[in-house]
């Protein structure tokens, strides 16, 4: 997009203007300011150990966000992604227990997650149940299944330490997975027909159908993508922690994913959103969580501060987005 006339005056302002007109600019700015703030107040925010910790806060919501962003763009949502997240490592565990080698067990578990996404999608598009309601149902349903098969007890993820390391136990492996998945999903959204059709369906369902796009297929496909990504996140998180927890994930991880997307500029009204924005949104949330932990904020206050921070980040983001629209008009 050509830079607006009002910022074309000098080189520096040109560069600054060009950056600010970029879609994800406002969130990046918020993330950088937060990092600077925590580094100045703590002094040990940008240490190697702490960067590993932050990356682990960031990775899981960033991957969940990839799926939820695709759904939000085509005007759907999966509230039960956190439940699929908790179920998947138990599916791997039981697959291995029944004699499958670990990698096939992971593949089978992800296949079952895909089936969950398929079921959610079909109920939503064929029976006309809003996905908010469909996934409210699966939210409880999947929790019930996880608690039943695990009998409420944690379990140890199967496989040797090498595999565990690749999957999540090595400090950086989770964020590497997240970055690879973010890169792939960015390509899917921006550079494939699937992504363009997803945006088209969310932007104007009737016009998309008029153009010959199979709206139901797009929606069901994105439910499957979301469920598989949620399941995969649950599995790598279990390997990182070294334990399957039947009460892991849940609505917290799902809402962190959705919040990452929304902070990153995905519209709840559908039709627009960016995967990179979702990653940066996850970074903002991760920096907040880690930064306030370093500052020794009272645990009871913690959620309240995170909530306020999300609101402030969102308000700043929306104001800046309005301003961007103003100058680029």
């Amino acid at each position: 997009m050509a830079p607006p006339a009002s910022v074309r005056r000098s080189g520096v302002r040109h560069a600054l203007g060009g950056f600010l007109v970029w879609r994800e600019a406002s969130v990046i700015l918020v993330a950088v300011l937060l990092v600077v703030y925590f580094e100045l107040t703590n002094g040990n925010f940008l240490t190697g150990d702490n960067i590993v910790t932050v990356s682990q806060f960031v990775a899981a919501p960033a991957i969940i966000a990839c799926g939820e962003i695709m759904l939000l763009i085509c005007k759907e949502i999966d509230l039960s992604a956190g439940q699929t997240f908790a179920l998947a490592p138990f599916l791997v565990y039981f697959g291995a227990k029944f004699g499958l080698p670990v990698i096939p067990a992971i593949v089978v578990a992800l296949g079952i997650c895909a089936a969950i996404g398929l079921a959610i999608g079909l109920i939503t598009v064929l029976l006309g149940v809003p996905s908010f309601v469909t996934t409210l149902g699966t939210y409880f349903l999947i929790t019930g299944v996880t608690l039943t098969i695990s009998r409420g007890f944690p379990a140890t993820p199967p496989g040797g330490s090498f595999l565990a390391g690749i999957m999540g136990a090595y400090g950086y492996s989770e964020i590497i997975w997240a970055l690879v998945i973010v890169a792939l999903m960015h390509i899917v959204l921006r550079h494939t027909r699937w992504g363009l059709h997803t945006s088209a369906v969310g932007g104007n369902e009737i016009a998309a159908a008029e153009a010959g796009i199979n709206v139901r297929r797009i929606k069901v496909g994105n439910f499957i993508i979301t469920a598989v990504l949620a399941g995969f996140t649950g599995i790598i998180e279990a390997y990182r922690v070294g334990s399957n927890d039947p009460l892991a994930g849940g609505s917290t991880i799902m809402f962190l994913g959705v919040a990452s997307g929304v902070i990153g500029g995905t519209a709840l009204t559908g039709g627009s959103g960016t995967i990179i924005g979702g990653l940066i949104g996850a970074i903002v949330l991760g920096v907040l969580q880690d930064g306030f932990t370093l500052q020794g904020i009272n645990a009871f206050l913690f959620d309240g501060i995170i909530g306020a921070a999300i609101l402030i980040a969102m308000i700043a983001n929306i104001r800046l987005a309005r301003w961007q629209r103003g100058v680029s008009r």
Partner: peptide
């Protein structure tokens, strides 16, 4: 058609 033709967000 007048209104159904295009996708505004694209």
């Amino acid at each position: 058609y007048q209104d159904l033709a295009l996708i505004n967000t694209l």
